[in-house]
Amino acid sequence: MKKVPILVIRNTLIICIQNDLTDTAILELQNDILDKTYKTRVNGVIIDISSLDMIDVFLGKVISDTTKMVRLLGAQAILVGMKPNIAITLIELGFEMPNVKTAIDVDNGLKILNKYEKYNATKVLEVTELSGED
């Protein structure tokens, strides 16, 4: 069965989902993403769907669940690269992905994750300063 490569770049996992995965392969990929997020302790996960030519309800649900699961692990997940034809079909199907963060492409996804990282760093700094005053 086709294996989807998961790249680890700095503090981010990048997964490019390919066409023609079976449902079982898609669920395995979800497992791999969560495993790798936990083990590598990354801050962000970018799910690149730019090479997909369709998303049905099953795939859409697994993708949207995966972003929620990643969040529970303590990382940020961003879906990038959805094509217009897929966005149209998903909405017509009645499948929406509220609460799933999206970006136009990997580059913009990385920028968004970078902002989170800085924001979190400032938050931690503030806490340290406060406790230092006690």
Partner: peptide, 17 residues
Amino acid sequence: GLVDQTRIVTAVSELSR
């Protein structure tokens, strides 16, 4: 057209599943 192709492929996926 591309959007219709996507609609049809998606429908086929749902009903085959």
